[in-house]
Structure formats: structure tokens, C-alpha cells
């Protein structure tokens, strides 16, 4: 679909031709706020939904599919309310993260059940869906006896059998082995390239980079960043990092460190002879630090990034 020239999206959280629109949506469960005034949209192609655990990704996906209502704001899928207009579900499918699958059903029965509910007229659609996720050989095994990865693929088959235009996948690569991961990533990309809106959540940045053209980052239920994955990487690179350094003469090392361009701040704990070094250029610091220690005749005992986890990077993004 061609971009609408009259509406160039300036906000990277919004796309020009949205299929799914989230407008100032807030969701809370008792005192816990799961989504807070979130505005974003998704269009054809693969979009990644990235964020640490508890960021609100699953809640957003449930709101998009109409499984839960938003307390404030709105969610629209192709201009319709997924919560109130059940016809929306003819065109949409969800693969949830949790391992729950219907007990007692074989993979074939599961896909046939979904095909019947969606009035799928292509006779071979269930078999085709199972073939696509490489489950045809075990199609007559009960899905509740499957491994986590196989269950996930069975649910993907159940979603694909309905040939949805909007496909929402919550951590779909969980439990999959590397070969299956590669196959599923290729499959999702093909679906996106075919004009479907594919929304994939993950808390693994590299995974989303391989999958999605566009990434929406959520932290604490709020929009932290959006755009191409390069823009997200750049945004993360611009966030300050903190490195813990322990040396035999911390005071002398601290004095030497403050002269480095890559260092934005140093705090020194004389009791432990520990330094916490703040930097915007972690790589440069990593190169300069050993040389600096040698020059200052200081022995480094420990160098440890304090916030190297994705969660801490996400947190920096919303500061």
C-alpha cells in the first residue's frame, strides 16, 4: 500500500497507513498500571514490540486483539473496536506467550477447530498451516504433550490457518531451537512482505532486529522509543552507562579518569576503593582504561558494567 503523502508521520511511533491504532491507551489492573497513555500505530510489515519483562507488551497485545478493554483511550483495528466488533476477529489472530494449549486435542484437530470457527473454505488450509510450521509429521499427537517450542508452533499454525491480515505474536520464538527460529523469522518476514500487519513482541533486541523493520519500545507501560532498529540502537548508545572499577589505588585512578573525554563523571568509594564511572562512550572507555591504569601505575582488580542488561538500557531510555 502506498504511503499517504498528505500525512507524513513525524512521530516515529505512528505509521502513515495504520492497520492498528492505539490512541492514548491506558490499562490498569487494580493499583498496577500496565499501560500509560500509550499512543502508537502499526501498519503492514513486521513491527517489533520490544521491552523488558513487565513493560506492558503482553497487555498491549491483548488490548489490540480485544481480549481486554482499555480503561482510557482507544484501540482500533482497521478502524473498528476489537473489543466490541467481533467481526474484527475474522481478520486477526493472536499467538499468546503462555504455554496453555487445549487439552486432549491433536495439532490437526486444533487447526481444524480454528478453521471451522473462522469458516475457512480452503480444504487444505489446516494441513498447509501445519506444514508451514513443520508440524505435519506430529499432527496427530496431542498438543498438550508437545514441548514448549512445539506448542508455540502449534499455536502459530492455529493462527495461520485463518489467514489473518493482522497477526499478533507474543514472544513467538520462545522455546524454539536455532533452526526453527530462523525458519519462523523467515516466515514472519514473508507474511509482513505480503502486506500483513505482523506485530511481534520480544525482550531480546537482536531477535527483534532480525525480525522487524520497525521497533516500538515499551518500558513501564510507556512508549520509550520507536522507529527503525538502527534508531533504537543509536538511542541506546546515547544513554549513559555506568561501570564499576575496583583498583588497588582508586583515588589515583579516579584523578586520572576525570581527564578522559569519554568519562562524564566519577564517584569514588574510599572504603571499598571502588569507582563508579559514568560514560557516554563505553567502547572508548573500555579501550582507554587499561592504558590509563598502566600509565598511572594502578592495578585494576575488577571492571564490571553496572547496567549492561537490556532492562537498564530501557530504563535509561525513559528517563
Amino acid at each position: 500500500m502506498a504511503a499517504n503523502p498528505e500525512f507524513p508521520p513525524h512521530d516515529p511511533a505512528l505509521v502513515a497507513n495504520p492497520t492498528v491504532e492505539v490512541d492514548a491507551a491506558s490499562v490498569w489492573f487494580g493499583p498496577k498500571v500496565a499501560l500509560s497513555e500509550l499512543t502508537c500505530s502499526f501498519g503492514p510489515g513486521v513491527s517489533g514490540l520490544l521491552g523488558p519483562n513487565g513493560a506492558g507488551k503482553t497487555t498491549l497485545m491483548r488490548a489490540i486483539t480485544g481480549l481486554i478493554d482499555v480503561n482510557e483511550g482507544s484501540v482500533r483495528v482497521r478502524g473498528r473496536d476489537p473489543r466490541r466488533d467481533r467481526a474484527v476477529h475474522a481478520d486477526m489472530a493472536l499467538v499468546p506467550e503462555d504455554e496453555a494449549v487445549p487439552a486432549g486435542l491433536t495439532a490437526r484437530q486444533l487447526t481444524h477447530y480454528l478453521a471451522d470457527l473462522h469458516r475457512v473454505t480452503e480444504r487444505d488450509a489446516p494441513e498447509q498451516a501445519l506444514r508451514t510450521v513443520d508440524l505435519l509429521d506430529v499432527a496427530d499427537r496431542r498438543v498438550d504433550t508437545f514441548s514448549k517450542g512445539m506448542r508455540q508452533r502449534a499455536k502459530i499454525a492455529a493462527a495461520l490457518v485463518t489467514d489473518p491480515n493482522v497477526l499478533v505474536l507474543d514472544e513467538p520464538l520462545n522455546g524454539a531451537d536455532p533452526v526453527q527460529r530462523a525458519q519462523l523469522i523467515t516466515l514472519f518476514k514473508q507474511l509482513g512482505a505480503g502486506g500483513r500487519t505482523v506485530i511481534v513482541s520480544s525482550h531480546v533486541l537482536n531477535e527483534v532486529e532480525r525480525l522487524a523493520d520497525r521497533v516500538v519500545v515499551l518500558v513501564h507501560g510507556r512508549l520509550a522509543a520507536a522507529g527503525g532498529h538502527r534508531a533504537i540502537r543509536d538511542a541506546m548508545d546515547e544513554t549513559p552507562r555506568h561501570v564499576l572499577v575496583r583498583a588497588d589505588d582508586g583515588r589515583r585512578l579516579a584523578a586520572a579518569l576525570v581527564g578522559l573525554d569519554s568519562v562524564t563523571g566519577v564517584t569514588f568509594d574510599p572504603g571499598r576503593s571502588e569507582l563508579t564511572v559514568s560514560t557516554l562512550q563505553a567502547r572508548e572507555l573500555a579501550t582507554a582504561l587499561p592504558r590509563l591504569a598502566q600509565t598511572a601505575s594502578v592495578r585494576l582488580l575488577e571492571v564490571r558494567p553496572l547496567d549492561d542488561s537490556l532492562e537498564s538500557l530501557f530504563r535509561e531510555l525513559v528517563r
Binding site: 486483539t65 467481533r86 486477526m92 493472536l94 499468546p96
Partner: peptide
């Protein structure tokens, strides 16, 4: 039981009238 174990969405997320 199906709502609790999380598999009821398969049925609910279809255009089937409630």
C-alpha cells in the same frame, strides 16, 4: 477451567457469535 488456564482465547478470538 479453560478461561483460567488461558486457552479460551482460541475460541473467543474468532468471529463466532458469543
Amino acid at each position: 477451567a479453560e478461561i483460567r488456564n488461558g486457552s479460551f482465547h482460541l475460541t473467543w478470538l474468532s468471529p463466532t457469535p458469543t
